[in-house]
Structures are given as structure tokens and as C-alpha cells.
Design a binder for these strands. Sequence first.
DNA 1: TAGATGGCCGACCGATCGGTTGGTAGGGTC
DNA 2: GACCCTACCAACCGATCGGTCGGCCATCTA
Lengths: 217, 217
Amino acid sequence: MNQTTSPPSSEINPGSERILDAAESLFAEHGFNGVSIQQVANKSGISKATVFHHFANKQELYISVVRRACEGTMRLLQSLSSDAQGDALKQLGDYRQRDLSEIQAHASVVRLILRELTMGNESQAKQLVDDVFGEHFLRLKNLITRAQSHGQIRPDMDAGIQAHAIVSINIMLFLLWPVLHHLPDTPFSDIEHASRQTFRMLLEGIQTPAPSEKTIA
Amino acid sequence: MNQTTSPPSSEINPGSERILDAAESLFAEHGFNGVSIQQVANKSGISKATVFHHFANKQELYISVVRRACEGTMRLLQSLSSDAQGDALKQLGDYRQRDLSEIQAHASVVRLILRELTMGNESQAKQLVDDVFGEHFLRLKNLITRAQSHGQIRPDMDAGIQAHAIVSINIMLFLLWPVLHHLPDTPFSDIEHASRQTFRMLLEGIQTPAPSEKTIA
DNA sequence: TAGATGGCCGACCGATCGGTTGGTAGGGTC
DNA sequence: GACCCTACCAACCGATCGGTCGGCCATCTA
């Protein structure tokens, strides 16, 4: 009906990909229960029965969406730990920037994962998300540990705690942005600027202080 | 049926409160679309028609739930700004602790609000949540500004940025806890401890440094 | 005692849900 | 040609959805 210049069949998009594309954005915006198969079918320009031809049931479709979304994130974080030498502190800064870009570029996927994270234990997709996020977290933690061993980051604080803080600022900035940026006299006009500022603030606490006696209660 | 020692009628809970209680936990766990009025009716030991007797429709019920949940948070943050004198830095630490306790004590409400925050603009309850969260944020920001003027916190960084970081650590700790605490060799065994550690880490970056030349690129 | 009121409910409604069925159209193989 | 396989779909199914309706019953008022 509305498929513009559609090739005979299955040329650019093998069909099931079209369904996944449609389902991903819908699930991300409305959640599992907020989306009907009919909506997915309509959005992908396909009949409802065909959706069930490609996916056994709604749950399987949802998990396929989550899995595909996670694969994208996987690819990114592999590149993160690829360069195992070099200035670890600089890499940390690069990570912050790339992570924010990734979050913004794949906003719907991030929202999908976040939603999965906030859910109870009901979902089968939760374990999947846990794994991806867990691996992401561990890679970042390794990067920090490396920076610690190079003396660039204070080793008297747990790398996990530090990693959590770094992860949190970008995610929360993204999550709360709609609220933050229309606050009265807000400093949140540019998300990249806010992220950089927050990271700098974090660093000056994390970073090994200049060797002056500075102990804080 | 399962109402234990129920008084003749409307003694402890005026009926609609029972509905709100049931609806709150259900909405928090499954979201708006994941909960049916029938479930709310069952959980509150009341018929479905009676739910519609007290609330015009499902949307109104939902908004009532969110509004009541926000009222609890309102009360807390009013007590926050009540003591406008005293050690602002110490108050900040107290805030961190009380905020975490509040989050843990009202986990379902927090999840509800978080879910509302991550949603698109569709919901009518979003503005409500925005207001509450916005006010919460502003009060914290004022506290920080006060600490800055007292020279306890470095004034060369925006109070809004600092407030965002402080808010974020507790929320994200709570949000990611299920993932964090079953990570391999994790430092996340006690959430209060993790929160305190992170706050300390944050502070040592926020806090006015001892007057030694320490400029960081 | 008669009437009004409000909390409550069983039974029902049209719409939509997730999912199934039976079948069509087309390309590949022999 | 006969055969098969995959992609696809209109029509349908039972269940459940949000919501309505008419009436029961306990309490209050007079």
C-alpha cells in the first residue's frame, strides 16, 4: 500500500528486518504491553499473520528486537577495549564522549534497554540486557583499573564505584534531559557540554591529586 | 474474600484508598498498559465496576496514583529545605543518605516515576512528575548554592551540574543495583555503602580543594 | 416509616488483543 | 508437468480489554 518503489520482493529488507525495525521503535516508545502486533504489522507494511510467520509469538519478537539492539552496543564496546595501550585517562575521556554520542544516536534502543532494566524479573529479555550491560560495565572498569595502575587515577577508591559514576552521568543526563533542559535558569542547554562538565567534575575527584597533603574527612 | 478482619465497611481504608494502593504497586511494576482494571479490582478486593465508580476511567486512576505518590516525595523535600542554616555540606551528606533511604523505602513509587520520566510525551502524568522532580532538583541546587557561598563547595562549577551528579548516583545505584550486585568480584554488596563511597568520591571533586596550586587540564 | 444517597456489584457491551487456519502466488528443482 | 518451499494474507477464534447499566443494600434524614 504505502511501500514506495518496493522491489519485487525481499531485496533491500528481507521482510523480517522490516518487522524488527518497526517493532524496535514501537517497543522503545511504548513498551512491550503498549504495542500490538497489528501496530507492528501496519508500521512495517505487512499483514499481522506474516508477523507470526516470522516470529512464533509476541515475546519472541520482543526478544529478537532486544537481541538485535544489544548486538549494536556489543560492537561499540568491543572497539572500546581494542586499544589496550595508550593514555588510559585520555581513553576514558574519549569513552565518555563516544558513549554519549552512542546514547544519543540510538536513543530508542537505550530507552528500550533502560525500560528492561527498570522492569521486574518477569521478562526473559532482562537476562540478555543484564549480560550486555554487565560486559559494558566490566570493560569500562578494566579501563579504569589500567589507569589506576598507570598512576593516573587514584587507586584508593574501588574501580567499580568509579565506573558506576562515569556510566551514570551520561545515562541520567540522557534520561532526565527533557526535564533538566526546561528548568528555570538551567545550565543544561547543551547535553554534550553538560556531560563534559560533569565528567571534569568527576575526574577532579577521581584523578590522583597533585602530591600535596590533602586529606578530607 | 481475602480481606482479613475487614471492618463492616470503610473504616481504616475509605475504599478508594485501597484501590490506589493496589493500583500503585501494579502500575509501578508493570506500567500503565501492563495493568488491567480487573487486576486492580482483584488486588483491592473490590469489583471492577466499583473501580469505575471511584475513578472516571483508567487514565484518571493512573494520574491519581502518580499524584499521591508525588505527594510523599513532596513532603520529604520540604523538610530538606526547612533548615536553612547550619553546615550546608553536612546537610548535603544527610540529603544523600535520606534520599537513598526514601528511594529504597518507596521503591515501587520511584520505579513508577522513573518509568514516567522515560516515556514519550504521550502521558498526562508526565507534567506532574516533571514538576515534582523539578522542584526536588531546585531545592537541592539551592542547598548547593548555599554551600558554595559558604566556601565549602567550589564555586567555579555550576550548581546545577553538581546537583545533577548527586541526584544521579543514588537513582542509578538503585536502578542498576540488580545488575551491579551480581557482577563478578563486585564492590556492590551494600547499597548504602556504595552510595556513601560514590558520594565521597564526588565530594572530593566538588569540595573546595585545600589552597595548594592544583589546576587540571 | 418513607425516601434519598452513596458504596458496591453481576452482567453485559463493542472493540481489540494475541494467535490460528486455510489458502494464494511465485521461484527452484527434477 | 509435478513437486516443494517460502513469503504472504484475509478471515477467523476465544479471551480479555476498558467501560456501562440497572439494581441491591446499608446508612442517614425527616
